[in-house]
Amino acid sequence: MTAEQPGRPRRGPGASLATAGRPGRTLPKAITSPTRAAASTVAYAVLAAVTIVFLLPLLWVLFASVNAEPSLRATPPSQFTLEHFEAVLTPETMFIPLWNSVLLSGGAAVTTVVVSVLAAYPLSRFNLRFKRPLLYTMLFATGLPVTAIMVPVYSMFVQANLLDSRGATTLFLAASSLPFGIWLMKNFLDGIPVELEEAAWVDGASSWQSLRLLVVPLAAPGMAVVGIFTLVMTWGNFFVPFLLLKSPDYLPAAVRIYSSFGQYGAIQYGALAAYSLIYSLPVILVYIAASRALGSKFTMGGALKG
């Protein structure tokens, strides 16, 4: 913006020619000009309006969860109370489903990280004949909708007698995040100089040793991204456990909140808000911590941008 002031060294030769040809044309567009100020005001007004609309549903949760007489509007609580939290913080409604969520998403995240590091290593380091098609297939698979294969997966689970098995559900969740995990891990390992490993090989280390002692420690941030990504995705996943798990004791919080407060459930707004808060809090905290620790790389844009 400052380039419009005369005499700035940043101006290219073409730019000065153009200004010279039409003196005065660009001057009103300086940052202090009324049109720019007006444009800036409009921009802030639009941003404020959008932010308020985005904020309203979120505000409702915060207010209704501590409001003694919660309504459907996002109004500040008339009387502060914690009874909604007390009401939902019981083993049956909250603790068991949360623990099931921890088991499912933790298991899926650990499996995904371990399996994708193992798979990404040879894909990054060796010249394998089938590597190219495999990587393309993997990238292709990241785009395939998991929703679309859920019906066949359900039938498979029925036929293999795996329905209501937490282990199999965890493995399926891990498998569905593997294409993305391996792809990310492979790109991450590509960034670690192979010279380090060559030095280790010269010193007599095997591939396995160099993977374990050298690559894994260096790849820790990449593993964290894959793990956190899987964790957040599976924590919020509703459809997979909704179809594959049946007994109420196994249901994670995602399904439990729907069966308790869903369309035909009781209309307890305070309890719904309190439950939503507690259930969402872990992912929000993990997201904040991860974006702090890993910087903008984690904000998905970096991971997926073309």
Binding site: W60, R73, W235, I257, Y269, S276, V283, I284
Partner: peptide, 24 residues
Amino acid sequence: VGAWVVPEVVAGLLWVVFLEREGG
């Protein structure tokens, strides 16, 4: 981004409330 981080089920339930006749 807060709206994006919220799990999908919660987003659905929040919008049911937001769009109710008496809602936001």
